[in-house]
Design a protein around this nucleic acid. Structure first.
Ligand code: FES
Ligand code: FES
Lengths: 152, 152
DNA sequence: GACAAAGTTGATTATTTTTATAAGCTTTAT
DNA sequence: ATAAAGCTTATAAAAATAATCAACTTTGTC
């Protein structure tokens, strides 16, 4: 039940863009430096986020990435969705799961358990947006002396 | 965010023992056959569950495993705890996490997010016991024609 | 137009974690 | 004594994850 490094990097990168929302593009290099993420890996990650239409890119000098939507319209689950095959704790909680891979799904007790779990996880990841993160960060920086930080 | 095969096997094995609670021991071989789990792997898993004092073993012919407590006193989280290093989505949600691995934890916004997630996950896994599974199974078998089954 | 600063893409490697197997041991009921 | 069980540790195999690399395209500026 671990969040992958890829997703963590992705959330951090998106947070970096959210902080900059409404301003000019941020280059991959800049994000990589600020968040201490391997540059080439971050490129891959941003490509995924691009394909998922969560970010917009501007090519050429002075270019970089921008959020494609307002921070309040980007949920954490959108990010995990773009970066992990699925956040489901077991594949068969999905209604679309193929019966033949998990026999007799309709009579399976385990499935009820994993479904409960899946719902709660979704609750959190669907219920939190980049704007929420930014607001938490503001609260932090007013009570703590140092700049808010975002890592792992 | 996947539940490991080891944990899934573990839950299934424990369910098998719960079904048999109050009766004679069930051998690893029997559990392996009923649940279609590789025998040697299951041995390892039961050893972990043994060390965590969730099961009792009886050696010699006719021996096998028994639940060490009543099904209502064994929560799913006890099982995951015995079989996974931790179910925490990121290590630093733990209050005991060492500061130097994740810098300035006190000013970290991500941590708030992962903590929220961790709490919800714990809610489900702490709130479900083996007895619950058995009861769900009973409900199933009275409405569905075939035996209840527990897999993945 | 030349150049450099960016993003784009796909392949490949490296690393880590997970899953599984195997072998040899100990205990104990009959 | 023997066979049916559990116990333990080492190792192999497989899969997933993380990271790197190289070659490419777009575009702003001088
Ligand atoms: S149907 Fe997938 S766990 Fe049983
Ligand atoms: S403290 Fe661990 S995510 Fe920031």
């Amino acid at each position: 039940m671990k969040i992958s490094t890829k997703t963590r990097y992705g959330v951090r990168a998106m947070f970096e863009l959210a902080k900059n929302y409404g301003s000019y593009p941020v280059s991959v290099k800049t994000i990589a430096q600020r968040q201490e993420i391997p540059l080439s890996y971050l490129e891959q990650i941003l490509n995924h986020l691009h394909k998922a239409k969560l970010v917009r890119s501007v090519r050429g000098p002075g270019g970089g990435f921008l959020l494609a939507k307002r921070p309040e319209h980007i949920r954490i689950i959108d990010i995990t969705h773009a970066l992990e095959e699925s956040i489901k704790p077991v594949f068969c909680v999905d209604e679309m799961a193929e019966e033949d891979q998990c026999k007799r799904m309709d009579g399976c007790v385990a499935r009820l358990l994993w479904k409960k779990l899946d719902e709660k996880i979704k609750e959190v990841l669907e219920g939190t947006t980049l704007k929420d993160l930014c607001e938490w960060a503001k609260k932090f920086s007013s009570t703590v002396e140092h700049e808010f930080i975002f890592h792992i």
